[in-house]
Design a protein around this nucleic acid. Structure first.
Length: 519
DNA sequence: GTAAGGTTGTTGCC
DNA sequence: GGCAACAACCTTAC
């Protein structure tokens, strides 16, 4: 049978290692590569302007790659459950393919869509390619329990064998006998909108440091993989949070949108490692991909993963409600130059180093301001190009010592931490020009500078740059005691998500489909 | 029940 | 630059 197929792009904005797309082209007459601008996302999540730009660029790149295969991308605005049935009818669709997405909204959306597809007699083929492994299987292989430590996850996936090898992008050979019906008004009806078309305010767009798209992703991957010595020696904790040129790969935004396949990344690293001495997980680059896998797994296994309440793995903390402090943190005016610099870089450029994320996350939550990690999660969701539902929630829980990480007495100093890798404060001077003339001695704590020094630097603390909003020395000690109290309140059954019976079986979309297909 | 280990803390001393 | 002390959490493995 010759199918009319929609391949629905959501994440996975790429042609390489895209098994659902390859499946779409099999026994296919007409292929419709589709992207839906689902209003649910801007309504229920935060998408900053830099993230929008990255997405639009990724779509443009996809369209240009599809053109080379004599196809095009169809961009349609509207909710999937409304748009897809119309397209099923209009295009006489018999098959729908897409990449599995484990986020809660995606899961419920896809279940609805699969129900509709059945009504319309459309066959559905979901494929796993966003993660290294089938996340449901990781939990199954761990006796139905969510792995709560990285070491546990490592031993589970080790027993599962290597991640699958990536598959190549479709070629003109794969496209033989397959066509995309295009109308003369394709651009008007299905073209990729500009940021202006979407009614977005582009005045706060930052410098264009990380253009979106698969081609850019693969180019950057090649560039980094050529640095074999650097790749083999990579140890995450030893990279610098405040170097002027990123000390890590910054491939995360590309992996987030699926412009780069995690499996492609994994196997390219394996090629570099082969026959050489190299670092290992958790600190190696392979280790970083496994951290991603870890948080994807816990996000599936732990209900209410992006919240404190109703999240049984999460320590329940009496966080303060302090809108002034929250705004100061978000808007880079805490009075701590290291913190304000990181928040400035985040807002302008959409990326900050992992350890810089640690510093500002600790500061907002258990370190200084005692504000809920959920508030920080919202800000990162908006501003980080690589912000991802599972990873964002997981890392905020980690840093706030709410879940996974429990050594709450280890507190980052907003003054000392940055000095380790940037003694002179060059990073601060780059992003906070108001402090540019401050002598090195006071760059991390300008409020300590004598008045004459402040005057010479052309920056009076309290007037041109804020005074620190808290006394770190006092407040961090107090907060350690508050954490101690929060931990003491935990009842024994709070202490582990896996106490009691196994996680009730909730079959993945792929498994549901397989079960249906067998009938 | 206990010991070991946990990506990535800070300070002060040598 | 290395090391101990600081205070002491959790999960896992035995």
């Amino acid at each position: 049978m010759s199918h009319n197929t929609i391949h629905w792009f959501r994440k996975g904005l790429r042609l390489h290692d895209n098994p659902a797309l390859i499946a779409a082209l099999k026994d296919c007459r007409h292929i419709y590569p589709l992207f839906l601008l689902d209003p649910w996302f801007p309504k229920n999540t935060r998408i900053g302007i830099n993230r929008w730009r990255f997405l639009i660029e990724a779509l443009k790149d996809l369209d240009s790659s599809l053109k080379k295969l004599n196809s095009r991308l169809f961009v349609v605005r509207g909710s999937p459950t409304e748009v897809l049935p119309k397209l099923f009818k209009q295009w006489k669709i018999t098959r729908l393919t897409f990449e599995v997405d484990t986020e809660p909204y995606s899961q419920s959306r896809d279940k609805e869509v699969m129900k509709l597809a059945k009504e319309y007699g459309v066959e559905v083929t979901p494929k796993i390619s966003h993660t290294l492994y089938n996340i449901d299987r990781i939990i199954d292989e761990n006796n139905g329990k969510t792995p709560m430590t990285y070491i546990r996850l490592q031993s589970v996936v080790k027993a599962m064998g290597h991640p699958k090898k990536p598959i190549p992008a479709p070629t003109n050979e794969d496209m033989r006998g397959v066509s995309t019906p295009l109308s003369d008004d394709h651009e008007e009806k299905f073209g990729i909108p500009t940021l202006e078309d979407l009614g977005l305010d582009t005045s706060s767009l930052g410098p264009h440091l990380f253009p979106g798209g698969e081609q850019e992703a693969l180019r950057r991957l090649d560039e980094h993989m050529e640095r074999t010595n650097w790749v083999c020696k990579f140890e995450k904790p030893k990279t610098s949070p405040n170097s002027l040129i990123p000390s890590t790969t910054v491939l995360s935004p590309y992996v987030r949108f699926g412009c780069l396949s995690a499996r492609t990344f994994w196997w390219r690293l394996a090629d570099v490692y082969r026959g050489k001495t190299h670092s290992d997980p958790p600190v190696s680059l392979h280790g970083q991909l496994l951290w991603r896998e870890f948080f994807y797994t816990t996000a599936v296994g732990i209900p209410n993963f992006n919240k404190m309440e109703g999240n049984s793995a999460c320590v329940q903390v009496d966080w303060d409600n302090n809108p002034e402090h929250l705004a100061a943190w978000r808007e880079a005016r805490t009075g701590f130059p290291f913190i304000d610099t990181i928040m400035t870089q985040l807002r302008q450029e959409g990326w900050i180093h992992h350890l810089a994320r640690h510093a500002v996350a600790c500061f907002l939550t258990r370190g200084d301001l005692w504000i809920s990690w959920e508030e920080g999660q919202k800000v990162f969701e908006e501003l980080l190009l690589d912000s991802d539902w599972s990873l964002n929630a997981g890392n905020w829980q980690w840093l706030s010592a709410s879940t996974f990480f429990h050594q709450y007495f280890r507190v980052y100093s907003p003054i000392a931490f940055g000095k380790k890798t940037d003694k002179h404060g060059d990073y601060i001077k780059k992003y906070l020009p108001v402090l540019k003339k401050f002598p090195t001695e006071y760059i991390y704590e300008p409020w300590k500078a004598p008045r004459s020094v402040q005057e010479r630097a052309g920056c009076i603390v309290g007037k041109d740059y804020p005074r620190p909003i808290v006394d770190h020395e006092v407040v961090h000690k107090k907060n350690i005691l508050r954490m101690k109290a929060a931990y003491a309140k935990r009842s024994p059954e709070d202490k582990t998500i896996n106490k009691g019976e196994k996680r009730k079986a909730s079959p993945s979309i792929k498994e549901m489909f397989q079960k249906k297909a067998k009938r």
